[in-house]
Each structure stands twice: as C-alpha cells, then as structure tokens.
Amino acid sequence: MKAFWLVLSSLLVYLIQTTFILNFRFYGVTANLPLIYVVMVALLFGNRAGLVAAALSGLFLDVLYAHAVGVNIFIFCTIAILIDLFDEALFKDNSLTPLMLIVLGTVVYHVLFLAHAYFFNLPIFVGKVFAVIAIESVFNALIGLLLYKYVIRRWFGYELR
C-alpha cells in the first residue's frame, strides 16, 4: 500500500471517527474506527503498512485529544506489532480471523489505555470498564467484518469465506 494512500485513508478514518461515528452511541459507547483500520491494514498489507497506519492514526488522535501525546501511537503500534508476530499463523481468508483480531485488539487497546490513565492519574470510571470493552468489541467486530469483506472483494478480487 502506497504511502499516499496510507496518509489519505488515515486522515479519512480520523475524520469519520470524530464526526459521523460519534453520532452512533449505545450506553454512551461508540465504535473505534482507527483501531479497526490499524488491525485491517496490519493484517492485509503487512507490518510496514500496519505500523505507518498505526503511527498516523495515533498521531491524529494524540495531537488533538490525548492527555499525553504518544498514547495512541504507542497502543496502535503495539497492536500492529502483535498482529505481525502472529502473521504466519493467521488464516486471512477466514472471516473469523478479522473478527477475533478486532475483538482482541479492542481488549489490548483498553488495557493499555487504562494503564496510561492510571499512571497519569486520570479519573477512571471502573464500573464502566467492562461495558465499554464489551459494547465497543461488538461495534468494532460488526463494522470491521463488513469493511474487511469489502476490502477483500475490491482490493484482492475474491469473496471471504
């Protein structure tokens, strides 16, 4: 995947997340499109593209929203590296693979995010932790699966099993 497309798609994902996606909340929880994007790019286009997508998506979120710059870059890059470590063992043509990776990615994201919140003494609503992870996992898995199927068909020219 060329660098230009990575920059453009990262920016587009960020814009959709900060405007359109925020309208769809359930129990105050919304989907995490940049996370889905990072998982998909790392899985389908390899380690280098995954890391660039992770760094760009993280950068946009960090500069404009995070309490400390680098948090989202760190989390997204960790997820991209984890996917790369298990890349050879993953069967990418099975719809369970993106589903499982997106759910695991969501869990890793929140574990690391909450660890950062703890170290930086930010308030954490403990009663909301499981609800956020569960609802976001469902949202992410559904959106991720649809997007994954679409990308496989358009980019690679075949249907997902």
Partner: peptide, 12 residues
Amino acid sequence: SKDPGNWYENFV
C-alpha cells in the same frame, strides 16, 4: 470537535 474515545469528554 469532540473526543472520539469512550472514556473522556474532552474537546477542541
């Protein structure tokens, strides 16, 4: 814009 995450209500 508003924080796109699920934890905080920060905005720009």
